[in-house]
């Protein structure tokens, strides 16, 4: 697989045909996520960043262009179990326990969850939920539910990991804690990661590349490389280099 990009979108366009007005969600979008890299997709609401991720996952059709995940079409890649996904909302099934929610992708892929009990237990420990194996989502806090959803996204040992604002519903303090944890988990798994977010400091803290998008029509305006060494710690947030980087991205976001 050497040399094959983890995720690649080439000239992808998508238009939502509504009553009266058509909305161009994506126009001639190009995106390359090298294998093993962490890419953050950032932009204002409605710039098409979530659409781009849904297209890459095969959840939405697109009008033109080409999408490849590990060299395969999205539907083939997802059905072969090499991808993992975490959405903005934890989207847990309310009637399933933590363990059975984490096992859901296995059932969809037609694998026997019983063979994965060891992996599930490890993931529960990894996200710090030991002791909550039999809890229902309604008994967990918002942060705990998000951690279940992160564990669920990792159960297939994905080569490619998609995250759509996975911590969007959390407060700033929790978010920073979860970002540190997410980095630790990602460093252990060594997958190709694509994070959709509208938090600038979250993108800078986590990513190797920050891809900035603009709306109307949805398009990529600049790709910025983030050179900070890993593992990155909480102290990074207070350094002048970090602030310089966030200011630069903010300027690109505001079209300056």
């Amino acid at each position: 697989m050497a040399g094959v990009p983890g995720i690649s979108l080439r000239g992808v366009s998508k238009t939502y045909r509504g009553r009266g007005a058509d909305v161009v969600a994506l126009k001639d979008m190009n995106l390359d996520c090298p294998p093993g890299s962490f890419t953050a997709l950032i932009g204002p609401s409605g710039c098409g960043k979530s659409t781009a991720m849904r297209v890459a996952l095969g959840l939405e059709d697109y009008d033109a262009g080409e999408v490849r995940i590990a060299g395969q079409a999205p539907a083939t890649a997802t059905a072969s179990g090499i991808t993992g996904v975490a959405f903005q909302d934890a989207a847990l099934l309310p009637w399933r326990t933590v363990t059975r929610n984490i096992a859901l992708p296995l059932e969809v892929l037609g694998r026997d969850p019983a063979h994965y009990s060891h992996e599930i237990a490890n993931l529960i420990e990894l996200v710090g939920l030991k002791g909550y194996e039999a809890a229902l989502p309604g008994q967990l806090s918002g942060g705990m539910r998000q951690r279940v959803s992160i564990a669920r996204s990792l159960i297939t040992s994905p080569e490619v990991l998609f995250m759509d604002e996975p911590f969007g519903a959390l407060d700033q303090i929790r978010r920073r804690q979860m970002n540190v944890e997410l980095q630790r988990i990602w460093l252990e798994t060594k997958s190709t990661a694509l994070l959709v977010t509208h938090g600038i400091d979250e993108a800078v803290f986590l990513a190797d590349y920050v891809v900035v998008m603009h709306a109307n029509p949805g398009r990529v305006v600049e790709v910025i490389e983030i050179p900070f060494p890993r593992p990155r710690s909480d102290e990074l947030y207070s350094t002048p280099e970090f602030h310089e980087m966030t200011d630069r991205i903010a300027r690109v976001l505001h079209g300056q």
Binding site: L57, L59, T78, F87
Partner: peptide, 14 residues
């Protein structure tokens, strides 16, 4: 149904 949960299933090729 909760379209978000359905998305999770579809995201794995369901």
């Amino acid at each position: 149904y909760d379209s978000r949960s359905a998305d999770v299933v579809r995201a794995y090729g369901g």
